[in-house]
Design a protein around this nucleic acid. Sequence first.
DNA 1: GTCGTATGCTGGCTTCTACAAGAAGAAATA
DNA 2: TATTTCTTCTTGTAGAAGCCAGCATACGAC
Lengths: 254, 254
Amino acid sequence: MLASTRRNKIKEILIKEKSVKVSELCEMFQVSDETIRRDLDELEKEGLIERNYGGGVLKKNVIVPPLLFRMEENIEEKEKIANKAIEEIKEGMSIFLDAGSTTYQLARYINYKGLKNITVITNGLNIAAELARNTNINLHVTGGNLKNVNYSLIGPDAVEYVKKYNADIAFLAAAGVSLEKGFTTSDIFEAEVKRTMIGSSRTSIVVVDSSKFGKDAMVSFCNIKDVDRVITSGEQNMDVIHDLKNHVVIDLAN
Amino acid sequence: MLASTRRNKIKEILIKEKSVKVSELCEMFQVSDETIRRDLDELEKEGLIERNYGGGVLKKNVIVPPLLFRMEENIEEKEKIANKAIEEIKEGMSIFLDAGSTTYQLARYINYKGLKNITVITNGLNIAAELARNTNINLHVTGGNLKNVNYSLIGPDAVEYVKKYNADIAFLAAAGVSLEKGFTTSDIFEAEVKRTMIGSSRTSIVVVDSSKFGKDAMVSFCNIKDVDRVITSGEQNMDVIHDLKNHVVIDLAN
DNA sequence: GTCGTATGCTGGCTTCTACAAGAAGAAATA
DNA sequence: TATTTCTTCTTGTAGAAGCCAGCATACGAC
């Protein structure tokens, strides 16, 4: 294992556990205690931890870079969801693909499964870049201003663009889902694009991993009943999911 | 195995594994460690990985597919041209960046030189993906339909988008340059976007390598005198360039 | 032929890691 | 509190692995 990989893993453990012990890390990575100490010294120099006898603790004021990790969170679950969602897409369809990490997985599956003869309209720059590899699909990119953290194109131009087209399905991402606030996201401009996608499509499907259930982000973009279907995986929050089943069709991918 | 094939395979492994080890790659490809190191150096220059002791790790924030972006011809010359062209960009400016391989180099230089506080509007998906890494610039992407061969976004939506904005400079790519036909490209939709960019900007600059001089592609998008400046490198076709100097300002990058 | 590119090899250097031994800190007991 | 015991830390050393620069070879393009 590369030294840097080991240190990154230590960082992940730190973020999850808030503190680490030298002895545990030795055992875990099968290296000597000096090596671990050197790693911790390094992390201390980076300002990530405070070193103390026997281990180290995560510093209080450390901001965990949000998307950096989020992209890789729940990746298996997102893959399952994408794999399920792709069943909805038939040849000849046109679809909206909202920017987001689950929808990005969906794009990857579209390539992987070799879907062809479909039209995709997306406001996700990473999604567009992924689908650009596939010469068998007709790809449209909405215009807009790039939001770097999640590669979404947003703003009035994106909204205008989406308004001009109609699609069979809109696949939407969400940062939170709850009965009270409905589907939520963290950016008002993104919310606007999502709403427009719902309005411009025959069917709207939210793809969202189970960690988002019962949470609310800053802006609601629609109510639970405003979408036709939710595709998720029931690995956590089974209770919240169960509640919502009275209001919307929920598909569990497994 | 071709070097470029090997590098592409390394890229694929990187995307899957997030990191690679020199020793493993040696074993896998049956080449010396020096060769692998040179490969990794190359990937580092491309901005795809971060090199570290014993291997390399995939950089965060990298939109994956830039790797599939086509192998370039005349790369050194295009780099020289880009390096010259970048001198025109001052802080606070807004610029159009037309899709194309020379303009793509320009985008890479913008990142490399760390230009900030500028606004870029582009219809090149690979250019957008490259610039998305740079959080110091304001990036707008025109909407449009993707043309896979060169990652350009074209069609009425792209044209409409460009019409709505004004820029200080438009950097344009061309497939051919001649006194009779002016600047040419191979696609009528691309031509339309280029024309609109010229109309929407205060100054228009064509960046083009010398191999294009004296050649005509299918569609003319403007006359020689319609642009303010041409930046090229005088490595071939010095005679044609000389002729054109009577009609337009030509900067030679060397 | 000449040139450029890709590759491998060599030797000297740096970095990483484990081991060992002694110092320092924590904890337990008198 | 003082002493003992155990754990952890620090430091030095050595070997292994990796790195870099330069040179040589091979191959294809011009």
